[in-house]
Simulated scan of single mutants.
Amino acid sequence: MWHIYLLECVDGSTYTGITTDVDARYRLHVLGSAAQYTRNHPPRVLIAALPVGTRAQTSRLERLIKHWSKARKLAFFQPYTTDWRSYCSCAPSEPRDSAAPELREPLNRHTVAVQHVATTQAEIWAILRRRVPSLTQSTLRCGLSEDDAARWACVWIDELDGSPADLIAHGHADKVLAYVLRATHQL
Score class of each variant (00 low, 15 high):
67 H>P: 04
68 W>A: 07
70 K>E: 13
70 K>A: 10
72 R>K: 12
73 K>I: 13
75 A>I: 03
77 F>N: 05
79 P>Q: 09
80 Y>C: 11
80 Y>W: 08
81 T>L: 05
83 D>C: 11
83 D>G: 02
84 W>V: 08
84 W>G: 03
85 R>V: 12
87 Y>A: 01
96 R>A: 13
96 R>H: 07
96 R>K: 14
100 A>P: 06
102 E>Y: 01
103 L>T: 08
103 L>F: 03
105 E>T: 12
105 E>V: 07
105 E>W: 06
107 L>Q: 03
108 N>F: 11
108 N>V: 09
111 T>I: 03
111 T>E: 12
112 V>C: 05
112 V>I: 15
113 A>P: 00
113 A>F: 13
116 H>L: 11
120 T>V: 11
122 A>I: 01
124 I>C: 00
127 I>M: 07
128 L>H: 02
131 R>L: 15
131 R>N: 08
131 R>G: 10
131 R>W: 05
134 S>Y: 00
140 L>T: 11
141 R>V: 05
141 R>L: 13
141 R>A: 14
143 G>R: 11
145 S>M: 05
149 A>H: 04
150 A>M: 02
150 A>T: 00
153 A>D: 02
155 V>Y: 02
158 D>H: 03
164 P>F: 01
165 A>Y: 00
165 A>F: 01
166 D>H: 08
166 D>A: 13
169 A>I: 10
169 A>E: 11
173 A>E: 11
173 A>I: 01
